[in-house]
Each structure stands twice: as structure tokens, then as C-alpha cells.
Amino acid sequence: MTDLLVPSAASAAEAALLASVPDGLFIGGKWGPSSTGRTLDVIDPSSGAVIKSIADATPDDAIRALDAAVGAADGWAATAPRVRGEILRRA
């Protein structure tokens, strides 16, 4: 009987983990959809099931991300090296 509970518990844990994973693009400090609103399905290779749909980034999204990074560069450069290191370690 306990064997039947393990897959259920594992499935619930997996579902909770997947629900916590963002499905958008992180650009300019905010999560959001792609510029087209399109998504890509992430497939579980063991079962072929779709486990998550995520934003399908476009070249326009890449340009927005690059522009946001350029805009943040001066602030990042002005941040003390120790603080930058702590931020990177947490990431």
C-alpha cells in the first residue's frame, strides 16, 4: 500500500514545484509574456506529456532584454563589488 502513496506524493510535489516555476520572460525586472503572446510546451521525455508551457521569446524580446540590460548597467557598475557578489551567489 505504501508504494501507491509514493507516486501520489511525488506527483503532488512535482506539481507544486512546476507551479512555482515562472512561465514568462524576465525583462527589465519584471516577468511577462513574449511580445507575441506565444508559448512553447515543455515535454517530459519519459512520458511525452506537456509539463509546462513557457513564453516563446522572439528577436524583439531579445532586443527588449538587451535594452533593459544596457539601462541597468550604470546602476550595476555603481554597486559595490561585495554586494554584486552576494547577489550573484544568491542567484
Rank of each mutant, 00 (worst) to 15 (best):
D3H: 04
D3F: 08
D3C: 00
L5Y: 06
V6C: 00
P7R: 13
P7L: 14
S8M: 14
S8R: 07
A9I: 12
A10E: 13
A10I: 12
S11D: 08
A13T: 04
A13Q: 14
A15V: 04
A15Q: 06
L17M: 07
L17W: 09
L17G: 03
L17E: 04
A19E: 05
A19Q: 05
D23L: 09
G24Y: 11
F26L: 14
F26C: 07
F26H: 13
I27T: 04
W31V: 11
P33V: 11
P33L: 14
P33E: 15
S34H: 05
S35E: 05
G37D: 00
R38I: 03
T39Y: 06
T39A: 07
D41I: 06
V42L: 15
I43G: 01
P45S: 05
P45D: 06
S46D: 12
G48F: 06
G48W: 05
A49G: 00
A49T: 00
A49K: 04
V50P: 10
V50I: 15
V50C: 12
V50R: 13
V50N: 12
I51M: 15
I51C: 13
S53G: 03
A57W: 13
T58W: 11
T58I: 11
T58G: 08
T58D: 07
D60L: 14
I63Y: 15
R64W: 00
A65F: 13
L66P: 05
D67T: 10
A68F: 12
A68W: 12
V70K: 15
V70Y: 10
A72E: 01
A73Q: 12
A73D: 01
A73G: 02
D74A: 08
D74P: 01
D74W: 02
A78M: 02
P81D: 08
P81L: 11
R82V: 07
G85C: 00
G85P: 00
I87E: 03
